[in-house]
Simulated assay, not measured.
Amino acid sequence: MARRSAVAHGRETAVEQERALPPADDRRANGAARGGDRSRAGRWGGSGGRWWVWLGRAILWAVIIVILVNGIRAPFERFTSDTAASGGGASPQKGAGFPASAGGAFALQFASVYLNYDQKSAAAREAQLRAFIPEGADGQFGWNGVGQSQVQSVQVAGVDARDANNAVVTVLARSADKWFRLAVPVYSSNGAFVISARPALLPPPAKAALPQQGVRERDSALETELSPVLTTFFQAYARNDQAALARFATGAPITGLTPDSVTFVQVREVNAPRGGAGDRTVTATVAWQIPGAAAGGELEQTYELAMVKKDNAWYVKEIRGTTEPGAS
């Protein structure tokens, strides 16, 4: 049997195989399907990619939410803050903006003129008042021009600012050994002042009653021990003897009184309550003689001293006035 040519056979086989292949479009579709099958077969790689996508989306949404919340909250906080400052919430600070120091000084100068008058010099008083009172106001500002008055002391006791332009300055004055208060209305604008209305006399401040204090147990042995120590200390304190005061001081140096302003007489009493062995706060009543006073004239004053004990010796850590009711 004759064999066909391999070349012819190969050509025919190729032709037959080409005829057996599906169209090109079908091959691409089948290839895509097989690629999808391979993707499903390797699920770990596809799932990992989607997981990162979802994580990125979650982070993006979180950032967007934070931006939105801050964007809404910021104007709301500014609105509530402005509302509170304008009176919608907490009330604004009373009298904010009124120049209290300058207004008080202006009222003090006015009161010094207003509270002193004499019918013999009424015209001079009126001329002085014109610098304080409004234009067109009564020149004597309520005084009928009869009699006389003189005050020995005038000082500002307080400033009640009603708003940025208006305040009532309370002046404490003494006339003929009597104390009283004068309420002076003051108007301020751009650094200028004027007495906006006639003042009003008010009663002097009431005298307060001290609270009842329990009797503290006193350390009589320590009081006896400290009496000579404090006598030497106050002698140096009266002369401002820095060398002597340095021997008593522990910590900051102690400054004494102006030399010759007083003369030391005696430590009249030492009051030492019971307490710690190494430190104690005591009060001492000291008698001073004031220069120029009549012979034998004395003035007793009470001091509070913070004492510290070191190497069996007592030192003065601090000296000041006392707030202890009835001390010494």
Results as ranks from 00 to 15, higher is better:
2 A>W: 06
206 A>T: 10
90 A>Q: 07
324 E>F: 07
41 A>E: 13
73 R>N: 02
140 Q>G: 11
213 Q>W: 01
59 I>W: 11
200 A>I: 15
133 I>S: 07
308 V>I: 14
181 R>F: 04
328 S>P: 01
286 V>C: 02
100 A>N: 12
235 Q>M: 11
242 Q>M: 07
143 W>A: 09
270 V>T: 01
226 L>T: 09
233 F>A: 03
39 S>C: 07
64 I>Q: 08
80 T>K: 06
9 H>G: 04
327 A>Y: 04
120 K>W: 13
203 P>C: 02
34 R>Q: 12
305 L>V: 03
258 T>L: 13
24 A>Y: 13
89 G>V: 11
285 T>F: 02
43 R>T: 08
25 D>N: 07
220 S>V: 08
279 D>E: 06
199 P>C: 12
209 A>F: 01
9 H>A: 08
91 S>F: 09
25 D>L: 11
90 A>M: 04
321 G>C: 00
322 T>V: 07
183 A>F: 04
294 A>Q: 10
175 S>P: 00
159 V>G: 12
49 G>S: 07
108 L>H: 10
54 W>C: 08
307 M>K: 06
224 T>C: 03
275 G>L: 00
152 Q>W: 00
225 E>W: 02
49 G>T: 11
215 V>C: 00
185 P>Y: 13
267 V>M: 05
2 A>V: 08
323 T>K: 02
296 G>N: 09
98 F>R: 08
309 K>P: 09
47 S>E: 10
106 F>T: 12
207 K>A: 08
26 D>P: 00
70 N>G: 10
248 F>Y: 14
155 Q>P: 00
322 T>P: 04
11 R>Y: 01
253 P>T: 12
52 W>H: 06
137 A>Q: 14
253 P>V: 12
151 V>A: 15
161 A>R: 11
72 I>A: 08
171 V>D: 08
17 Q>H: 14
195 I>V: 15
118 D>S: 09
299 L>D: 05
215 V>A: 13
219 D>R: 01
231 T>R: 05
126 E>Q: 15
156 V>R: 05
131 A>R: 15
241 D>A: 09
290 I>R: 09
40 R>M: 07
301 Q>T: 15
183 A>M: 11
1 M>E: 11
83 T>G: 13
289 Q>P: 11
51 W>Q: 07
47 S>I: 10
99 P>Y: 08
218 R>W: 04
323 T>G: 09
10 G>Q: 00
22 P>T: 09
172 L>G: 03
167 A>C: 07
